Deep mutational scan, measured.
Amino acid sequence: YQDQEQRILKFLEELGEGKATTAHDLSGKLGTPKKEINRVLYSLAKKGKLQKEAGTPPLWKIAVS
């Protein structure tokens, strides 16, 4: 689980600052079920590491501290 968090954070960091992506996109790029990706995304957002942008589907990006 920790491993997934690292992979997602790394992927988003590599996208570049301010760039956002969807759970669907992450799921495809990382070869992980979207349900699992979503769980990790919401967990990271709760920890303040990610920012969720409203929309359908929601967009995710690295939180700027």
Score class of each variant (00 low, 15 high):
Tyr1Gln: 06
Tyr1Ala: 06
Tyr1Pro: 05
Gln2Ser: 11
Gln2Cys: 07
Gln2Glu: 04
Gln2Gly: 06
Gln2Met: 11
Asp3Ser: 08
Asp3Gly: 10
Asp3Cys: 08
Asp3Pro: 08
Gln4Met: 15
Gln4Lys: 12
Gln4Ala: 05
Gln4His: 13
Glu5Asn: 02
Glu5Trp: 02
Glu5Thr: 05
Glu5Pro: 03
Glu5Phe: 02
Glu5Leu: 02
Gln6Arg: 12
Gln6Ser: 11
Gln6Pro: 05
Gln6Lys: 14
Arg7Val: 08
Arg7Cys: 05
Arg7Ala: 10
Arg7Trp: 03
Ile8Asn: 01
Ile8Gln: 01
Ile8Arg: 00
Ile8Trp: 00
Leu9Gln: 04
Leu9Arg: 02
Leu9Thr: 03
Lys10Leu: 07
Lys10Ser: 12
Lys10Tyr: 04
Lys10Gln: 12
Lys10Cys: 08
Phe11Gly: 04
Phe11Lys: 09
Phe11Cys: 14
Phe11Met: 13
Leu12Pro: 01
Leu12Lys: 01
Glu13Tyr: 08
Glu13Gly: 13
Glu13Pro: 01
Glu13Ala: 11
Glu13Phe: 09
Glu14Gly: 13
Glu14Thr: 10
Glu14Arg: 09
Leu15Val: 07
Leu15Thr: 06
Gly16Asn: 03
Gly16Leu: 02
Gly16Glu: 11
Glu17Ser: 11
Glu17Trp: 04
Glu17Pro: 11
Glu17Met: 07
Glu17Gly: 13
Glu17Asn: 08
Gly18Lys: 07
Gly18Glu: 08
Lys19His: 11
Lys19Trp: 05
Lys19Ser: 13
Lys19Glu: 15
Ala20Asn: 05
Ala20Glu: 06
Ala20His: 12
Ala20Ser: 14
Thr21Val: 13
Thr21Lys: 03
Thr21Gly: 02
Thr21Phe: 14
Thr21Tyr: 07
Thr21Cys: 15
Thr22Leu: 01
Thr22Gln: 01
Ala23Asn: 02
Ala23Met: 03
Ala23Tyr: 01
Ala23Val: 07
Ala23Leu: 05
Ala23Glu: 03
His24Trp: 13
His24Asn: 07
His24Val: 02
His24Pro: 03
Asp25His: 10
Asp25Leu: 11
Asp25Ala: 13
Asp25Gln: 15
Leu26Ala: 02
Leu26Ile: 12
Leu26Asn: 00
Leu26Asp: 00
Leu26Ser: 00
Leu26Trp: 00
Ser27Met: 07
Ser27His: 05
Ser27Ala: 14
Ser27Tyr: 04
Gly28Ser: 14
Gly28Phe: 14
Gly28Cys: 15
Lys29Leu: 10
Lys29Cys: 11
Lys29Trp: 08
Leu30Cys: 05
Leu30Asn: 00
Leu30Ser: 04
Gly31Glu: 15
Gly31Ser: 13
Gly31Leu: 11
Gly31Pro: 02
Gly31Val: 06
Thr32Glu: 13
Thr32Met: 15
Thr32Ser: 12
Thr32Asn: 05
Thr32Asp: 05
Thr32Val: 14
Thr32Cys: 11
Lys34Arg: 14
Lys34His: 15
Lys34Ile: 12
Lys35Phe: 05
Glu36Leu: 15
Glu36Thr: 15
Glu36His: 12
Ile37Arg: 00
Ile37Gln: 01
Ile37Glu: 01
Asn38His: 12
Asn38Ile: 02
Arg39His: 14
Val40Arg: 11
Val40Phe: 12
Val40Gly: 08
Val40Gln: 10
Val40Lys: 06
Val40Ala: 14
Leu41Val: 02
Leu41Thr: 01
Leu41Ser: 00
Tyr42Glu: 13
Tyr42Arg: 15
Tyr42Trp: 08
Ser43Trp: 07
Ser43Glu: 13
Ser43Leu: 12
Leu44Gly: 01
Leu44Gln: 01
Leu44Lys: 00
Leu44Glu: 01
Leu44Thr: 01
Ala45Ile: 05
Ala45Pro: 00
Ala45Tyr: 14
Ala45Arg: 13
Ala45Met: 15
Lys46Glu: 13
Lys46Cys: 07
Lys46Gln: 10
Lys47Asn: 10
Lys47Asp: 11
Lys47Thr: 10
Lys47Glu: 10
Lys47Met: 10
Lys47Ala: 12
Lys47Trp: 02
Lys47Gln: 11
Gly48Ala: 03
Gly48His: 03
Gly48Gln: 06
Lys49Glu: 11
Lys49Gln: 13
Lys49Thr: 09
Lys49Phe: 09
Leu50Cys: 15
Leu50Asp: 00
Leu50Ser: 02
Gln51Val: 15
Gln51Leu: 13
Lys52His: 07
Lys52Tyr: 07
Lys52Ala: 06
Glu53Lys: 15
Glu53Ser: 09
Glu53Pro: 03
Glu53Cys: 10
Ala54Phe: 08
Ala54Leu: 11
Ala54Trp: 06
Ala54Ile: 12
Ala54Asn: 14
Ala54Arg: 12
Gly55Trp: 02
Gly55Arg: 04
Gly55Lys: 05
Thr56Tyr: 13
Thr56His: 15
Thr56Gln: 14
Thr56Phe: 10
Pro57Ser: 04
Pro57Leu: 04
Pro57His: 03
Pro57Arg: 04
Pro57Met: 03
Pro58Glu: 08
Pro58Gly: 06
Pro58Arg: 03
Pro58Asn: 07
Pro58Thr: 13
Leu59His: 14
Leu59Ile: 07
Leu59Met: 13
Leu59Ala: 10
Leu59Thr: 11
Trp60Asp: 02
Lys61Ile: 00
Ile62His: 06
Ile62Glu: 03
Ile62Gly: 03
Ile62Pro: 05
Ala63Leu: 04
Ala63Glu: 06
Ala63Gly: 10
Val64Lys: 08
Val64Ser: 13
Ser65Asn: 08
Ser65Tyr: 09
Ser65Leu: 07
